[in-house]
Design a protein around this nucleic acid. Structure first.
Lengths: 202, 202
DNA sequence: TGTACATCAGTGAACGCGCGTTCACTGATGTAC
DNA sequence: TGTACATCAGTGAACGCGCGTTCACTGATGTAC
């Protein structure tokens, strides 16, 4: 087991660069440059899918993308920045799917359930998410905070007490359901039904 | 590399070490040896508490325990075995706390709630757990499977449908609550109340 | 009692390896005249 | 049209470093006689 799962938070290797001046990357502007950047992110997804978040080494990513190691640093300041970009890309995709599924509903149970379903479906489309879900964290950082904030008004509209605390628990519930489904790679109606019962409370 | 079984022949107390069989560790038997092993695990907890699961390097552990690097391999076959022992130690402690809190209840809501409270309290006692909780995993492996199995009969006794799927979701719910409490280091009555509402379903 | 030896635990230098990161350089593309 | 130059992206060898692991050795303790 190479347990680099949490390494995105720390740099295991000390940097010669002075800590106060972070290396800067000038964003790609040419179509070719943009394509290379996208290829690196896509490679990151593929690697994460196969080897988990801990498997996302610069070596593995550039090998999967078919570019030189140096190219990685043309597009990303360092490994952490790459991981962050990956996360952002995931959150964006899933967020868009949720937005599309919920925009026609008022805050409340229907909107919440529609959002949950969209979330689960989006996760199934992005198997690599599994690795990220595990440590998405529901704390101050991480995309789940966004989700919790989106869930809260629905609970409020549904007349729940402790909507804030409950929202975070709901997100955990949904994330777990996503993990369960990702294990088999298909929808799990039983889990979804059980999940629905938790949030509907009859 | 040279053949290991040959080189170890030179040792007066030779061990049969076939190349294809995993290195074995003979468990410590003397009080001193047992104390050293316990010190390594305790050091692992301390390191995990401060740097997360990924921070548990052999170097960090032996430094925290104040022993030589080689000593680590006297007591554990490799890093993975150490992590597994850490997990087992956690699961054992928490499991014991839950057992003590639930043994006087029949299966059902009261037993479930008592177990949940005991779990949360035990987690607060073991801040290092935070790192492990994040990746305890609720899949085939990991201690959470045990918890899910313990939860299930209670749900069944409470007349729930989909008790199996629901049990896993309940475990995720409780784990998230534990993480929330670990963030501040104290009980969070609001979260516990919200949690209780999820599992009681009024 | 002393002595020889077996057993157990601990030591730390040394190893090979993969990691993240750097940097001097090359090539491709666009623009000016 | 050709030529000179600027800009952008890509390259890959090389670096230092921390990692997990090994192994020949030392020291402490127990036991036999």
């Amino acid at each position: 087991m190479t347990d680099r799962s949490c390494t995105s938070e720390r740099s295991r290797y000390h940097r010669a660069v002075p800590a106060d001046v972070a290396r800067q990357v000038r964003p790609a502007v040419t179509p070719h440059g943009l394509r290379t950047r996208a290829a690196l992110l896509e490679a990151g997804r593929a690697v994460a899918e196969e080897h988990g978040l801990a498997g996302i080494s610069v070596n593995a990513v550039v090998a999967a993308a078919g570019v030189a190691k140096g190219t990685f640093y043309v597009h990303f300041a360092d490994r952490d920045a790459f991981i962050a970009a990956l996360r952002a890309s995931f959150a964006e995709r899933v967020g868009a799917a949720i937005a599309a599924a919920t925009e026609h509903h008022e805050a409340g149970a229907r909107r919440l359930l529609a959002g949950i379903d969209a979330y689960l479906d989006a996760c199934l489309d992005q198997r690599a998410l599994k690795a990220l879900l595990r440590e998405a964290g529901t704390g101050a950082d991480g995309a789940d905070n966004t989700f919790a904030r989106a869930v809260e008004p629905n609970l409020r509209a549904m007349g729940w007490r402790d909507a804030h605390a409950s929202a975070r628990l709901v997100v955990a519930l949904v994330a777990e359901a996503a993990v369960i489904e990702l294990e088999t790679g298909r929808r799990d109606p039983t889990t979804r039904r059980a999940l629905r019962r938790f949030v509907q409370r009859d």
